[in-house]
Design a binder for these strands. Structure first.
Lengths: 213, 213
DNA sequence: AAAATTATTAACCATTTGGTTAAAATTTTA
DNA sequence: TAAAATTTTAACCAAATGGTTAATAATTTT
């Protein structure tokens, strides 16, 4: 019962509005007044709760950066799955994340390039440990019969193949699909299996033909 | 003889300075005063030559967007090369371009997402014809034994694998190499052969094992 | 219910910023 | 070389913007 409309508290409304505006327009493009309007409150409240634009932005950015690095490492380290299953799970989860947060890639790339220093700070405070990554390279390398360095490149290629279709949406939609957003979305849907297939077929191709072209 | 220092004309100095500032900071982050300082001229001259910030920006953006879509289609359509050679050439040229213009990917992605409408306009005025792209899919599909749709995904994956390491430099450098930029540059150098190998091995893997995992 | 604390607002402020103007310097033309 | 044109500059302007303040409203505490 009592299905009353739940009034979000002011801080929550601000965070929600700030996320929308910042992810869409970036720190430089966002206006405090716009965030206030979007939240339906007075502009002074933004400063009352978050002191400054910079501080409010950092609050949002910290959360979004953590979303951008989801818990994918456990998947790659699991000993319950074959590497083929790991790849499928990894790509599945990552693309699903971006389907739910389509602006996340462009936002993170924009802000990380605007202020490259900031990422070092967030990396150490977050649970993104590049220590575990070394372990991932080792384990996967063993399973796939690749060197650590080859796994590194393969990982970047896989991540690239997941992220770029979202970060480059306006280009892809316009250049490849003449602005037809249905076709673009269709393309994204296919992406999960396509990317996983790529990686898996690559590994199969390597096992058989070694180096000769 | 006469190795006198060539004084660029004002318009050239402005364009050069505007390119540096805009590509690094974006339209929203750039300041007209900073561009003037960078060019070593009075701010009013920017308006004398280019009317407004927006107009100056568009002049730069038009050029950079064309750089971003280099003449790669002829490579893919050539009938002088096998598809393996085409892939190597394509990846080589594209990564070489970004090694020479490291900020190009981040800049284009940032601005294209800030104002997605603008790309439609530039696409039609430029020589980026998505008509030729259909032809590319068909030709490559035939050569590689793939459907047009599979070629599309393969193309995006290849382009992604070339672009993302540059667009995501701060992330990759920090997360994967603990901020060591020498290691990051080393990684970029290896990238040309790695990406091409990836695509080529994928195709070999497909030819042999069809579907079964 | 009075006092104290917290939340919210309208009005205001200082600075930044894109853009203008009118005069001066330079170059071109006649 | 004088006039006409183009180029360059310093000073200025209006709007936008992040931020503050002081008063008011709402809530919590005593």
């Amino acid at each position: 019962m009592t299905p009353q409309k739940i009034e979000k508290d002011t801080e929550g409304k601000i965070l929600e509005a700030a996320k929308r505006v910042f992810t869409l327009k970036g720190l430089d493009g966002a206006r405090m007044q716009e965030i206030a309007d979007e939240a339906g409150i007075n502009k002074a409240l933004l400063h009352y709760y978050f002191r400054s634009k910079e501080k409010l932005f950092m609050t949002i950015f910290r959360v979004e950066l953590n979303n951008f690095f989801p818990r994918l490492i456990p998947i790659l380290l699991s000993d319950e799955w074959t590497y083929v299953q790991k790849i499928r799970h990894f790509v599945d989860e990552y693309i699903e994340l971006f389907l739910k947060n389509p602006f996340l890639p462009a936002f993170v790339l924009r802000e990380v390039n605007r202020n490259p220093q900031v990422i070092a700070h967030f990396i150490v405070e977050s649970d993104i440990q590049s220590g575990k990554l070394k372990e991932v390279m080792r384990v996967l390398g063993k399973e796939m019969g690749l060197s650590s360095n080859e796994v590194l490149h393969l990982l970047i290629t896989t991540v690239s193949a997941c992220i770029f279709p979202f970060a480059g949406k306006p280009i892809i939609e316009q250049v490849l699909f003449n602005g037809n957003s249905d076709e673009y979305n269709q393309f994204l849907q296919e992406r999960k299996t396509m990317v996983a297939d790529f990686v898996i077929c690559y590994l199969k191709g390597r096992q058989i033909s070694n180096g000769n072209e």
